[in-house]
Design a protein around this nucleic acid. Structure first.
Lengths: 346, 346
DNA sequence: CGCAGTGCGGAATGCGTTTTCCCACATATT
DNA sequence: AATATGTGGGAAAACGCATTCCGCACTGCG
């Protein structure tokens, strides 16, 4: 029983010996290979494996077959519900395919993202999924693309989530259209005077949503005063800070503030609450993403629904499908405006 | 440029040939081995590696050295902020050690957990971290322990998060004490008539928190009427359902409802809101965990703070420290009552 | 000038698998 | 009865890399 403190795991070799068969037969018995093996032998091997508590060494298998069964996932911040929901979808889809997922977080830094992609290549994952908003004009952008191309050139599949314009297969959300639809709905609710909270100017997602929103308003002859567009980090605290800034300027002229993401919107709502501003009585709020907590804040948050978990799921399916070989297949997922109590009919 | 559609990645062998050195020299140049290598050779190798876009094959390295650099993390549900915060801590700590983390989700099923542990063993991770509440009386429990012991016996480190009583190193939260302190604080706030929302009866975490809370109240001669303890799934929807059940019985006799987790509390708050019950005017609410959104709901949620990310971080540190060898080191993290607007002074 | 020591490149070995290749044997075909 | 055609086990060769061991060219010392 009390083995030496740190014996090494049983190997296939041990199993073969224990079962009195060859390595080849043991291997064939334990993983449905194409070759058949006599049922008696197979049983012997299975029994021996169980007896020895054998567990195949994935690394060795990977080396031998020249391919792994892992999918690597890159997110900006796993504690952010936007990303954790996507991750849940990725993991779910991966598991049904018998794939293991490894995760790394970029902390919203493009440089870090590049480093991680470089490192992750060493895993030889079957699939690499990148999510998080692209930031254009970045120096590392070209290097990132090169690195991903190198990965793809050696048989790896790359899928991007929610970031168009890069030469890889992508699952995109129509941020522009969603934001435009939201603007239309809000005007329909009776709102006329808007403010917006955005992320960094280079963040594509933020820009698209802002643009869509502005264009949606424009259809009704409404414009957002430039002073009423404030920016912050793409986080809860960023939203909080931006809202605080907005408050400093006075919100007398504003009916509703649109934040480009739910987490920012929720940060903003907290800022309002702390300032004694009551949503939606004093000011209405709308977000984007429809994260789980959007319906649990008070008032429940008006937003644009994105099927987050589906995004992740579709990403791995796209990666595994042959369509991904074409290198720039695009799956577009639908968004849907969800009006809630944070923007009641006026 | 247009290589064959799917060339294989450059190997160390290729690099060595390109640099005109031996395999050994190439290996030594690319990963700070103990042996020194002439600077000129090293430069040649580095240049060749860059030219060929070489990326070391982790699997092969793992096979060669007989050890990997991955930590496997098991969570119940990555979309749950409780787990995603812990995961963030684990990932952060792992990355600083140059470790890769792989993740799997158990969906709160002990059977699934067992399957996953079995599968994960194949990765030969350096560390395996299990989180999620233990459910005692489960059939799979013994099998799980056996599997983990087998893993530990072959040099693997096992660390549990927030689940005492199993023969492994653990990072525990003092649920009992935290809940008791919360009860005391709430009584101090003037509350006297309580209800509670718990998870399944077998869930250790739920039970400890309930027990602590009850004992805390008992110190003041207060008891919760058995009818006022309702149970549901350990999720937002579970909290919602439990609160709905509570409402059906009438909440006239209740000042405050304590939910054993923030997500359940938030679900409960949503149920109240939908029923037109105003928190905290009509009923106060308190939770446990202090997930990020606890401060962002309205009213902000009174809860017991757990440094979730630290939990994850400490788990990997514990795993990597030699203390883990003793097989049942326990790190106890402090909790702290956080009174917020959901339970104002009466 | 000889000898022990040292520094460092290279050949070879091994890690745990899968997979090819060879071969013995059984069965089917003429 | 003799040959063709599977069928399936086993030996051995990969797979990509780390590392041990060997040997060569120096260096320093007496």
């Amino acid at each position: 029983m009390a083995a030496s403190p740190t014996a090494s795991p049983a190997t296939l070799h041990d199993v073969a010996r224990e079962a009195g068969v060859s390595l080849a037969t043991a291997s064939r018995s334990l993983n449905g290979s194409t070759r058949k093996v006599n049922d008696e032998y197979r049983q012997r091997v299975l029994a021996a494996a169980a007896r020895l508590n054998y567990s195949p060494n994935f690394s060795a298998q990977a080396v031998a077959k020249g391919s792994t069964s892992t999918v690597a996932l890159l997110v900006s911040d796993i504690a952010d519900p936007y990303f954790s929901s996507i991750a849940a979808g990725v993991i779910r889809a991966a598991e049904t395919q018998g794939l293991i997922v490894t995760m790394a977080v970029t902390e919203r830094s493009t440089e870090r993202e590049l480093e991680l992609v470089r490192a992750l290549r060493g895993q030889r994952p079957r699939v690499m999924i990148l999510t998080g908003s692209r930031s254009d004009g970045s120096e590392s952008q070209a290097a990132l693309v090169a690195e991903l191309k190198a990965f793809a050139a050696t048989g790896g599949r790359v899928v991007l989530i929610s970031q168009e314009g890069l030469p890889f297969s992508t699952v995109v959300v129509d941020n522009y259209l969603g934001a435009r639809a939201l603007a239309n709905s809000l005007v329909g609710q009776g709102y006329r005077r808007f403010a917006a909270i955005g992320g960094a100017r280079t963040l594509v997602t933020s820009r698209d949503r802002l643009a869509g929103f502005a264009d949606g308003l424009a259809e009704h002859g409404i414009a957002i005063h430039p002073d009423h567009i404030v920016r912050g980090e793409f986080t809860r605290d960023g939203g909080f800070a931006a809202a605080t800034e907005l408050l400093a300027d006075g919100i007398g002229q504003i009916d509703l503030v649109f934040a480009v993401s739910d987490v920012m919107a929720i940060g903003a709502m907290s800022a309002f609450r702390e300032a004694g501003i009551v949503v939606p009585r004093d000011i209405a709020v709308a977000g984007f993403d429809d994260i789980d907590t959007a319906r649990d804040v008070t008032p429940a948050l008006t937003t644009v629904h994105i099927p987050l978990a589906d995004l992740g799921q579709q990403a791995v399916e796209l990666a595994l499908s042959d369509a991904a070989l074409s290198s720039d297949e695009v799956i577009r997922v639908e968004t849907r405006v969800v009006l809630r109590a944070s923007s009641p009919q006026l």
